[in-house]
Design a protein around this nucleic acid. Structure first.
Lengths: 138, 138
DNA sequence: GTATTCTTGCAACAAAGTTGCAAATACAAA
DNA sequence: TTTGTATTTGCAACTTTGTTGCAAGAATAC
């Protein structure tokens, strides 16, 4: 458990600190994406807001987590699968945000459909966010 | 020109005021989506920040504009096509955000691909945002 | 032209995010 | 284990972003 977390951090050349361990553990435990606010409160507010920001930024840089853009402009963070590496991030699945409970989840089984862009445009990344009712709320 | 703008406002049962006319004109003139910040500065900061927020909210409610969610969490606003009506908003096209110039555009010709959701999920709205290099920057 | 309703600007506030710096911690090497 | 160095954290102060109540000002209906 804890060993697993330390392993992930070490694999990404990150020193093992309290905040990184706890925040990473939080991600491993939760099955839906987390907003910055969630992270602060669910860690019992023991870490400074700045520390949480910086930890998330570090995890982003290393490709451990990725963001889910939502129409209401609240960034959610979710764990990346193992094919995400530093710099090059490939987030190849659809995201779902529930209208009722607000939870954001990665639908790992649903692949991003291909999009035919007009001439002159070149895609680097495609984000698909579906809003609706999730399987818990229906 | 100006007549056109007033017509749109009247069609949406909105009283015709200076801020609404100028902000709507700005949208009609620009071919890419605008962030709140752009709107403030491009109108010469003559309108209070609060007025801009409220005007955008009003336009959203009436279905005149819609938002484009971006991974970096900066909401962009763009004009809706005529098939958007109050309440029921159908934004059936792909959005493109350029890595280089940062401009966000609606690719009206590119339809949203269909997404097969897992059992239990029900889609209300699908947002597709493509990041990459636009035709101006390549 | 006047009355009523809607809209605006101001002030004050709340939330979100950033930066510099000193103290504290992690880790490597002795 | 202890020491030295580099990294990380927390604090303070600040900027940006977004919200709310209210009085003054405009737009529309009559």
């Amino acid at each position: 458990m804890d060993n697993n977390i330390s392993t992930i951090l070490r694999k990404n050349q990150l020193s093992i600190t309290g905040s990184r361990k706890q925040i990473l553990e939080l991600f491993l435990r939760s099955d839906s994406a987390l907003a910055h606010h969630d992270i602060e409160s669910k860690t019992g507010s023991v870490f400074d807001r700045v520390t949480v920001y910086r930890t998330l930024q570090t995890f982003m840089d290393k490709g451990i987590i990725h963001t889910i853009p939502t129409p209401d402009n609240s960034i959610r963070y979710a764990l990346c699968k193992d094919d995400c590496s530093e710099g090059h991030h490939h987030d190849n699945h659809v995201h779902f945000v529930c209208d009722k409970c607000g939870s954001a989840t990665c639908l790992d089984g649903v692949a991003i459909p291909s999009v035919d862009l007009p001439k002159g445009y070149k895609a680097r990344e495609i984000n698909v966010v579906v809003n609706g009712i999730c399987k818990e709320c229906r």
